[in-house]
């Protein structure tokens, strides 16, 4: 967008990066992206606080997947038993106790498949274009904070990033 600049802050520790995220929040800069080489609780908490995100929606897909799997297992076992409904040895046509194993396994299977597929879907993966501001070191040993700010705020936000501990702040056109 015209008149916007990307500030790319590089941090050596997650604490500094989390502090910078809080600083952005205080500076009313909400258009930002964070890169980290590993899952950091501190950064996640800081981002959640700023963005007001609740827990990941992946869990809702998983719940739906688990129920679907269990239902599929029930239909598969009971339905096919009734399809070939010959009573053998006086036993019930559909015996629920042994079918619980199949129902359980399919519940797990469908739950797992929904966990992975919803993770890809919600995280917008596979991504064919690199995210703006991404540097290869953000996957190795540095934390990156990319903020999009208007021309007038650049100096103020850049100073804030440096104060938070950024070892480098680069500018790029947004």
């Amino acid at each position: 967008m015209n008149g916007e600049i990307e500030l790319i802050g590089t941090f050596t520790s997650e604490d500094e990066c989390a502090a910078a995220i809080e600083g952005l929040h205080k500076a009313h800069v909400h258009d930002f992206n964070v890169f980290s080489p590993f899952m950091s609780e501190k950064i996640n908490e800081a981002v959640d606080e700023v963005r007001g995100w609740g827990r990941s929606p992946v869990r809702k897909f998983v719940l739906a997947g688990g129920f679907t799997g269990a239902f599929t297992g029930l239909i598969l076992t009971v339905g096919t038993s009734w399809e070939w409904n010959i009573i053998a040895g006086g036993r019930p046509i559909a015996a629920i106790a042994p079918y619980i194993v199949i129902i359980f396994e399919l519940m797990i299977l469908f739950g797992v498949l929904s966990a992975v597929s919803s993770f890809f879907f919600i995280s917008r993966l596979p991504a064919f274009e690199p995210a703006p501001g991404y540097r290869t070191r953000f996957g190795a040993d540095k934390f990156g904070l990319v903020a999009r700010v208007g021309d007038g705020d650049v100096s103020r936000v850049e100073a804030m990033l440096r104060d938070a501990g950024a070892e480098e702040v680069a500018r790029a056109a947004a």
């Binding site: 890169f35 590993f38 990941s56 596979p126 996957g139």
Partner: peptide
């Protein structure tokens, strides 16, 4: 798959991984 370790990706990754672990345990 285009992974770049963004906060959105890690957030969903950690939840999906936790739930996978929860399923794998039983």
């Amino acid at each position: 798959c285009g992974w770049q370790g963004t906060d959105r990706q890690w957030r969903n990754f950690s939840m999906a991984y936790l739930l996978l672990a929860g399923f794998a345990t039983p």
